[in-house]
Design a protein around this nucleic acid. Structure first.
Length: 269
DNA sequence: ATGGTCCCCTGACCGC
DNA sequence: TGCGGTCAGGGGACCA
Protein backbone atom coordinates (compact mmCIF):
# COMPACT_ATOMS: atom_id res chain seq x y z
CA UNK A 1 0.00 0.00 0.00
CA UNK A 2 2.31 2.66 1.10
CA UNK A 3 4.13 4.76 -1.36
CA UNK A 4 6.27 7.66 -0.30
CA UNK A 5 3.36 10.01 0.46
CA UNK A 6 1.81 7.44 2.77
CA UNK A 7 5.11 6.86 4.55
CA UNK A 8 5.67 10.60 4.84
CA UNK A 9 2.18 11.05 6.25
CA UNK A 10 2.86 8.27 8.77
CA UNK A 11 6.16 9.87 9.70
CA UNK A 12 4.52 13.22 10.37
CA UNK A 13 1.92 11.56 12.54
CA UNK A 14 4.61 9.77 14.52
CA UNK A 15 6.65 12.91 15.01
CA UNK A 16 3.74 14.60 16.72
CA UNK A 17 2.76 11.56 18.75
CA UNK A 18 5.90 9.76 19.92
CA UNK A 19 8.94 12.05 19.79
CA UNK A 20 10.08 12.65 23.35
CA UNK A 21 8.22 9.63 24.68
CA UNK A 22 10.06 6.99 26.67
CA UNK A 23 9.57 3.33 25.86
CA UNK A 24 8.17 1.36 28.75
CA UNK A 25 8.03 -2.03 27.10
CA UNK A 26 8.08 -3.71 23.71
CA UNK A 27 5.75 -6.47 22.62
CA UNK A 28 6.25 -8.85 19.78
CA UNK A 29 3.17 -10.73 18.71
CA UNK A 30 4.47 -12.18 15.49
CA UNK A 31 8.12 -11.86 14.58
CA UNK A 32 7.99 -13.36 11.10
CA UNK A 33 7.80 -10.48 8.69
CA UNK A 34 10.01 -10.19 5.65
CA UNK A 35 12.85 -10.69 8.07
CA UNK A 36 12.42 -11.75 11.67
CA UNK A 37 11.92 -8.86 14.04
CA UNK A 38 14.96 -9.05 16.35
CA UNK A 39 13.81 -10.21 19.80
CA UNK A 40 16.65 -8.28 21.43
CA UNK A 41 14.48 -5.18 20.95
CA UNK A 42 12.53 -6.31 24.01
CA UNK A 43 15.68 -5.77 26.07
CA UNK A 44 17.26 -2.86 24.25
CA UNK A 45 14.43 -0.36 23.91
CA UNK A 46 12.80 -0.11 27.33
CA UNK A 47 13.72 3.19 29.06
CA UNK A 48 14.92 4.62 25.77
CA UNK A 49 13.54 7.97 24.67
CA UNK A 50 12.41 8.58 21.10
CA UNK A 51 14.79 11.29 19.91
CA UNK A 52 13.55 11.72 16.38
CA UNK A 53 11.42 10.13 13.67
CA UNK A 54 12.65 10.54 10.12
CA UNK A 55 12.15 8.95 6.73
CA UNK A 56 14.60 7.69 4.13
CA UNK A 57 12.87 6.53 0.98
CA UNK A 58 10.07 4.35 2.27
CA UNK A 59 11.91 3.47 5.46
CA UNK A 60 10.74 5.01 8.71
CA UNK A 61 13.59 5.64 11.11
CA UNK A 62 12.89 5.91 14.82
CA UNK A 63 15.98 7.17 16.55
CA UNK A 64 17.05 6.31 20.08
CA UNK A 65 20.24 6.88 22.01
CA UNK A 66 21.21 3.23 21.48
CA UNK A 67 20.45 3.07 17.76
CA UNK A 68 17.69 3.32 15.20
CA UNK A 69 14.62 1.24 14.61
CA UNK A 70 14.13 0.82 10.87
CA UNK A 71 10.57 0.12 9.78
CA UNK A 72 9.33 -0.65 6.30
CA UNK A 73 5.60 -0.98 5.68
CA UNK A 74 5.90 -3.23 2.64
CA UNK A 75 2.70 -3.56 0.66
CA UNK A 76 0.13 -3.60 3.41
CA UNK A 77 1.68 -2.18 6.55
CA UNK A 78 0.33 0.63 8.65
CA UNK A 79 1.14 2.15 11.99
CA UNK A 80 -1.16 3.68 14.50
CA UNK A 81 -0.75 5.16 17.93
CA UNK A 82 -3.43 4.45 20.46
CA UNK A 83 -4.06 4.10 24.16
CA UNK A 84 -2.23 1.17 25.71
CA UNK A 85 -4.51 -1.73 26.42
CA UNK A 86 -6.80 -1.28 23.45
CA UNK A 87 -7.65 -4.75 22.19
CA UNK A 88 -5.16 -6.16 19.76
CA UNK A 89 -6.43 -6.29 16.23
CA UNK A 90 -5.73 -8.90 13.63
CA UNK A 91 -2.30 -8.53 12.00
CA UNK A 92 -0.86 -6.30 14.70
CA UNK A 93 2.60 -7.81 15.06
CA UNK A 94 4.69 -5.41 17.06
CA UNK A 95 4.20 -2.58 19.52
CA UNK A 96 6.15 -0.02 21.46
CA UNK A 97 4.42 1.09 24.63
CA UNK A 98 5.33 4.42 26.12
CA UNK A 99 5.29 5.81 29.62
CA UNK A 100 2.43 8.17 28.75
CA UNK A 101 0.21 5.11 28.35
CA UNK A 102 0.05 5.16 24.57
CA UNK A 103 1.49 2.58 22.23
CA UNK A 104 2.57 2.46 18.64
CA UNK A 105 1.41 -0.62 16.78
CA UNK A 106 2.51 -2.06 13.48
CA UNK A 107 -0.22 -3.80 11.50
CA UNK A 108 0.77 -5.68 8.35
CA UNK A 109 -1.56 -8.32 6.88
CA UNK A 110 0.73 -9.48 4.10
CA UNK A 111 3.86 -9.27 6.24
CA UNK A 112 6.08 -7.92 3.48
CA UNK A 113 7.14 -5.18 5.84
CA UNK A 114 10.06 -5.25 8.22
CA UNK A 115 11.31 -4.03 11.58
CA UNK A 116 15.08 -3.87 11.84
CA UNK A 117 17.55 -2.33 14.21
CA UNK A 118 20.92 -0.72 13.79
CA UNK A 119 23.08 0.23 16.72
CA UNK A 120 25.37 2.52 14.72
CA UNK A 121 22.71 4.25 12.65
CA UNK A 122 23.82 2.64 9.42
CA UNK A 123 22.30 -0.27 7.52
CA UNK A 124 23.11 -1.97 4.26
CA UNK A 125 19.52 -1.51 3.08
CA UNK A 126 19.89 2.24 3.51
CA UNK A 127 23.40 2.49 2.10
CA UNK A 128 22.43 1.73 -1.48
CA UNK A 129 19.46 4.08 -1.68
CA UNK A 130 19.33 6.80 -4.31
CA UNK A 131 18.37 10.44 -3.97
CA UNK A 132 15.25 11.76 -2.25
CA UNK A 133 12.82 12.96 -4.93
CA UNK A 134 11.69 16.05 -3.05
CA UNK A 135 15.18 17.48 -2.58
CA UNK A 136 16.48 20.18 -4.90
CA UNK A 137 19.37 17.95 -5.94
CA UNK A 138 16.85 15.72 -7.65
CA UNK A 139 16.56 17.53 -10.96
CA UNK A 140 16.44 16.91 -14.69
CA UNK A 141 20.21 16.82 -15.06
CA UNK A 142 20.54 14.15 -12.39
CA UNK A 143 17.90 11.90 -13.89
CA UNK A 144 19.19 12.45 -17.40
CA UNK A 145 22.76 11.60 -16.40
CA UNK A 146 21.67 8.49 -14.53
CA UNK A 147 19.63 7.32 -17.50
CA UNK A 148 22.46 7.24 -20.01
CA UNK A 149 23.16 3.76 -21.35
CA UNK A 150 20.15 2.41 -19.46
CA UNK A 151 18.20 0.10 -21.69
CA UNK A 152 15.46 -0.67 -19.20
CA UNK A 153 12.10 1.01 -19.65
CA UNK A 154 11.71 4.47 -18.20
CA UNK A 155 9.07 3.15 -15.86
CA UNK A 156 11.44 0.59 -14.33
CA UNK A 157 14.10 3.29 -14.25
CA UNK A 158 12.08 5.79 -12.20
CA UNK A 159 11.02 2.99 -9.86
CA UNK A 160 14.62 1.96 -9.25
CA UNK A 161 15.38 2.90 -5.64
CA UNK A 162 19.10 3.03 -6.39
CA UNK A 163 18.39 5.97 -8.68
CA UNK A 164 15.63 7.76 -6.80
CA UNK A 165 13.71 6.49 -3.80
CA UNK A 166 10.03 6.46 -3.03
CA UNK A 167 8.43 6.28 -6.45
CA UNK A 168 6.20 3.23 -6.44
CA UNK A 169 3.88 1.80 -9.01
CA UNK A 170 1.04 4.29 -8.64
CA UNK A 171 3.13 7.41 -8.74
CA UNK A 172 5.42 6.12 -11.48
CA UNK A 173 2.34 5.72 -13.68
CA UNK A 174 0.89 9.07 -12.67
CA UNK A 175 4.16 10.97 -13.13
CA UNK A 176 4.83 9.52 -16.57
CA UNK A 177 1.32 10.43 -17.62
CA UNK A 178 1.63 14.00 -16.39
CA UNK A 179 4.96 14.29 -18.20
CA UNK A 180 3.51 12.76 -21.37
CA UNK A 181 6.14 10.05 -21.56
CA UNK A 182 5.42 6.55 -22.87
CA UNK A 183 6.31 4.08 -20.08
CA UNK A 184 7.65 1.66 -22.70
CA UNK A 185 10.47 3.95 -23.79
CA UNK A 186 14.03 2.99 -23.04
CA UNK A 187 15.38 5.26 -20.32
CA UNK A 188 18.38 6.16 -22.47
CA UNK A 189 16.18 7.31 -25.33
CA UNK A 190 14.52 10.13 -23.40
CA UNK A 191 15.85 13.65 -23.96
CA UNK A 192 17.10 15.93 -21.22
CA UNK A 193 14.27 18.42 -21.65
CA UNK A 194 11.77 15.62 -21.11
CA UNK A 195 13.59 14.49 -17.96
CA UNK A 196 13.33 18.02 -16.64
CA UNK A 197 9.60 17.92 -17.15
CA UNK A 198 9.41 14.45 -15.64
CA UNK A 199 11.14 15.61 -12.48
CA UNK A 200 8.73 18.54 -12.16
CA UNK A 201 5.86 16.09 -12.65
CA UNK A 202 7.17 13.67 -10.02
CA UNK A 203 7.56 16.42 -7.44
CA UNK A 204 4.11 17.79 -8.20
CA UNK A 205 2.43 14.38 -7.99
CA UNK A 206 4.19 13.46 -4.74
CA UNK A 207 3.54 16.81 -3.11
CA UNK A 208 -0.11 16.74 -4.04
CA UNK A 209 -0.44 13.25 -2.61
CA UNK A 210 1.26 14.26 0.62
CA UNK A 211 -1.03 17.26 0.85
CA UNK A 212 -4.00 14.96 0.40
CA UNK A 213 -2.66 12.75 3.17
CA UNK A 214 -1.82 9.98 0.78
CA UNK A 215 -3.98 8.00 -1.54
CA UNK A 216 -6.72 5.95 0.02
CA UNK A 217 -6.36 2.33 -0.83
CA UNK A 218 -7.96 -0.43 1.13
CA UNK A 219 -6.60 -0.59 4.62
CA UNK A 220 -4.32 2.30 5.36
CA UNK A 221 -4.96 3.71 8.79
CA UNK A 222 -3.44 6.94 9.88
CA UNK A 223 -1.35 7.13 13.02
CA UNK A 224 -4.21 8.45 15.11
CA UNK A 225 -6.38 5.52 14.08
CA UNK A 226 -8.71 7.36 11.75
CA UNK A 227 -8.69 6.39 8.11
CA UNK A 228 -6.74 9.50 7.31
CA UNK A 229 -6.88 9.42 3.57
CA UNK A 230 -9.50 10.53 1.22
CA UNK A 231 -9.53 9.36 -2.31
CA UNK A 232 -7.56 11.53 -4.56
CA UNK A 233 -8.02 11.62 -8.25
CA UNK A 234 -5.74 9.30 -10.13
CA UNK A 235 -5.40 10.19 -13.79
CA UNK A 236 -4.37 6.75 -15.07
CA UNK A 237 -3.74 4.26 -12.25
CA UNK A 238 -6.63 1.79 -12.18
CA UNK A 239 -8.46 3.75 -14.88
CA UNK A 240 -8.35 1.13 -17.65
CA UNK A 241 -10.76 1.95 -20.47
CA UNK A 242 -11.69 5.37 -19.14
CA UNK A 243 -11.01 8.44 -21.24
CA UNK A 244 -7.70 10.20 -20.66
CA UNK A 245 -8.27 13.57 -19.01
CA UNK A 246 -5.74 15.13 -21.34
CA UNK A 247 -6.72 13.81 -24.76
CA UNK A 248 -9.77 11.58 -24.33
CA UNK A 249 -8.17 8.37 -25.61
CA UNK A 250 -8.83 5.19 -23.65
CA UNK A 251 -6.44 4.45 -20.79
CA UNK A 252 -4.63 1.18 -21.35
CA UNK A 253 -3.21 -1.36 -18.92
CA UNK A 254 -0.09 -3.35 -19.70
CA UNK A 255 2.30 -5.45 -17.62
CA UNK A 256 5.91 -4.36 -17.22
CA UNK A 257 8.31 -6.29 -14.98
CA UNK A 258 5.37 -8.14 -13.43
CA UNK A 259 3.67 -4.91 -12.41
CA UNK A 260 0.65 -3.24 -13.95
CA UNK A 261 1.28 -0.07 -15.87
CA UNK A 262 -1.55 2.28 -16.77
CA UNK A 263 -1.02 4.90 -19.44
CA UNK A 264 -2.57 6.81 -22.30
CA UNK A 265 -1.40 5.38 -25.62
CA UNK A 266 -2.14 8.65 -27.41
CA UNK A 267 -0.66 11.47 -25.37
CA UNK A 268 2.22 9.56 -23.76
CA UNK A 269 4.85 9.32 -26.45
C1' DA B 1 27.16 -3.81 -13.95
C1' DT B 2 22.51 -4.50 -15.90
C1' DG B 3 18.08 -6.07 -16.31
C1' DG B 4 14.46 -9.39 -15.83
C1' DT B 5 12.03 -12.81 -12.84
C1' DC B 6 10.61 -14.89 -8.57
C1' DC B 7 8.66 -14.77 -4.41
C1' DC B 8 7.47 -13.64 0.50
C1' DC B 9 1.79 -13.40 2.45
C1' DT B 10 -3.16 -12.36 3.19
C1' DG B 11 -7.37 -10.44 1.69
C1' DA B 12 -10.63 -8.57 -1.64
C1' DC B 13 -13.16 -9.30 -5.47
C1' DC B 14 -15.27 -11.62 -9.44
C1' DG B 15 -17.47 -15.29 -11.99
C1' DC B 16 -19.64 -19.56 -11.62
C1' DT C 1 -22.87 -19.23 0.39
C1' DG C 2 -18.93 -21.49 -1.26
C1' DC C 3 -15.00 -22.16 -4.24
C1' DG C 4 -11.31 -21.26 -7.28
C1' DG C 5 -8.78 -17.99 -9.80
C1' DT C 6 -6.75 -13.41 -10.10
C1' DC C 7 -4.89 -9.40 -8.46
C1' DA C 8 -2.66 -6.00 -5.17
C1' DG C 9 0.71 -0.21 -3.47
C1' DG C 10 7.46 -3.37 -2.35
C1' DG C 11 11.75 -4.77 -3.20
C1' DG C 12 15.67 -7.96 -2.03
C1' DA C 13 17.64 -12.24 -3.86
C1' DC C 14 18.90 -14.53 -7.58
C1' DC C 15 20.09 -15.61 -12.29
C1' DA C 16 21.47 -14.80 -17.22
Amino acid sequence: MPELPEVETTKRGLVSLIVGQTVQYVRLYRAKLRWDIPPKLLDILPNQQVLEVTRRGKYLLIEFQVGILIIHLGMSGSIRVLDAGVNLQKHEHFELCFSNNTCMRLNDPRRFGSVLFSANGKHRLLDSLGIEPLLNQFDGSYLYTQSRHKKQTIKAFVMNAKVVVGIGNIYACESLHLAGIDPNREAQSVAKKRYEFLVISIKKILNNAIKAGGTTLQNFTNTDGRPGYFSQTLAVYGQTGKPCGTCGAKIRKIIQNQRSTFYCPKCQT
